[in-house]
Amino acid sequence: MSEIKKEEVTKDHSHVQHVEPYTPQFGTMIPSGTQKFMRTCVLWQIVRFVAINIKMSVLILKSHH
């Protein structure tokens, strides 16, 4: 790919610039803006904090014999 100047990058695409074709990175997925927002949305993350703790507690209970 030709060199792209920083100011020419469309803002919405700045976080997906690492998955160009014919690179090892092309085969993976990149989070959308919404996904990235949810990862740091405190209210949603409080819900996920409870969920992760429940999942880990269940895991521990299943693992002791």
Partner: peptide
């Protein structure tokens, strides 16, 4: 159902905990 993965701030809090 027991094998999960997610990314977010909540996991940071779990790490602190």
């Amino acid at each position: 159902n027991g094998t999960t993965g997610e990314i977010g701030l909540a996991a940071h809090w779990v790490k602190h905990l």
